[in-house]
Write a protein that binds this DNA or RNA. Structure first.
Lengths: 139, 139
DNA sequence: GCATGAACTGACCTATACGTCACCCTGTGC
DNA sequence: GCACAGGGTGACGTATAGGTCAGTTCATGC
């Protein structure tokens, strides 16, 4: 893996458009260096973009993702800053744990739907062998 | 708990605006009955709204949530429908499992940030007792 | 020295998920 | 008889997350 990238390279690798990445820059989520006017991304920029995309998969807005990223490079030199960081981090953790509960519950329900559908299909296969579909097929 | 509700009652209970609930109706996520022109929600409508809100907490769009709700009251009378239901359900499950992996990874990282912040605070409390904040406080 | 391709910057367009507003209808109390 | 609360319907406004398009710059090849 190289250690410098263009927008287009990163866009293709990450499965997004260059436009999206430029948009993230405008929103302060990445800050690639420049060679003249051309954006030059390093591995740290790439890592941040990976975090952005993960945040999106979790359903967060770009603003929320930005706050999340801020936790990583927050100022750790003052106790007051550390205390704020700790509080914000814990709140984020609590939100994610709520999300996990929602996720588990939804997964449980969908597994129920899956089992039910499987059972219904199996039941029909047993009582109506050879019939591929629908009751009216017997008419 | 009553078994019929007005928009306003449900809105207050669920912590959303009546406007939002009416919007969900327009989008086909709920279909309350009517008494004249007035919406009348029953417990099933309420349950659907709870599912909508959970879907939102998971970051899904209303269109996605609608597809999710469709899994619950899909037509189970034909084998072809059951097969489609099974396929869609399994795809949803796979997506949610990806989301869970993202969630676990993010939670792990945030717990790392939390530990780090705690350690830094503890370290300073030991080496600089009585100092509440910042190096320049000594000037 | 000029076309070409890759990058850039606006400016405008789009869909989603509501909020806000104005205005209407209707049953109830006084 | 009428004000008023509670509910309803458009129509328009707003923020987010980009897509699309036009026009510009810049290094290179021929």
């Amino acid at each position: 893996m190289p250690d410098l990238f263009t927008v287009n390279q990163l866009a293709e690798e990450l499965g997004v458009t260059p436009r999206a990445i430029r948009f993230y820059e405008v929103k302060g989520l990445v800050a690639p260096r420049r060679a003249g006017t051309t954006r030059v991304f390093d591995r740290r920029d790439r890592a941040r973009l990976l975090l952005v995309l993960r945040g999106k998969r979790l359903g967060f807005s770009l603003a929320e993702i930005r706050e999340f990223l801020d936790l990583y490079d927050a100022d750790r030199s003052q106790n007051s800053q550390l205390t704020m960081l700790l509080a914000r981090t814990r709140q984020r953790i609590a939100e994610l744990e709520q999300q996990r509960r929602d996720l588990e519950q939804t997964l449980g329900e969908l597994r129920g739907v899956e089992r039910e559908a499987l059972a219904a299909l199996a039941g029909r296969a047993a009582t109506e062998p050879g019939v591929a579909d629908a009751p009216h097929a017997a008419e």
